[in-house]
């Protein structure tokens, strides 16, 4: 059976992830970590499945910043249970090309082994995120454009 992950390890890891501190983050990633971000890859190029520590570090340190800069995670709720951790939070950033502020909800699920992350899955409100990255509403079936009130603030 896998050992429970200590809260101190989780907090140290998550603080590094939230602040994009790659130097501190790197030791918390298993060499074979699998990092999955759910979403439309053609709009949010960082989505998809990424395998291996080097690939994940490149994703976080180079690939995502090509699209989003000043990225920061704001956790609202964290649940630690055995070797698993779930975080509900918000990701805020700026689009690198035009400087628009972007903010969307994110659910993150981590699995630790020997105090290192071996598995990561995140779900984001990808419709909201895609519209913000595109800078316009996505085409609706009936041609109706989205209004601010279409998106709930929860």
């Amino acid at each position: 059976m896998t050992e429970p992950v200590p809260r101190a390890v989780v907090e140290a890891f998550y603080n590094a992830l939230a602040g994009c501190d790659m130097e501190t983050l790197a030791p918390f990633l298993d060499d074979n970590v699998v990092w999955t971000i759910s979403g439309p890859v053609d709009i949010l190029q960082f989505c998809g499945q990424h395998s291996g520590k080097a690939v994940v570090l490149k994703l976080l340190d180079r690939d995502i910043p090509l699209l989003l800069e000043k990225r920061r995670l704001y956790p609202e709720s964290m649940v630690i249970d055995g070797d698993r951790v779930a975080v509900l939070g918000k990701l805020s950033a700026r689009r690198r090309d035009v400087g628009h502020a972007i903010s969307y909800r994110i659910a993150q699920f981590f699995r630790f082994q020997d105090e290192k992350v071996v598995e990561y899955v995140s779900l984001i409100d990808s419709f909201d995120a895609a519209e913000q990255v595109l800078g316009r509403p996505l085409v609706r079936q009936a041609g109706r454009q989205a209004e601010n009130s279409d998106f709930i603030s929860v």
Partner: peptide, 8 residues
């Protein structure tokens, strides 16, 4: 709070 891959 339910979060889904809403685009999908």
């Amino acid at each position: 709070l339910s979060l889904i891959d809403s685009f999908d």
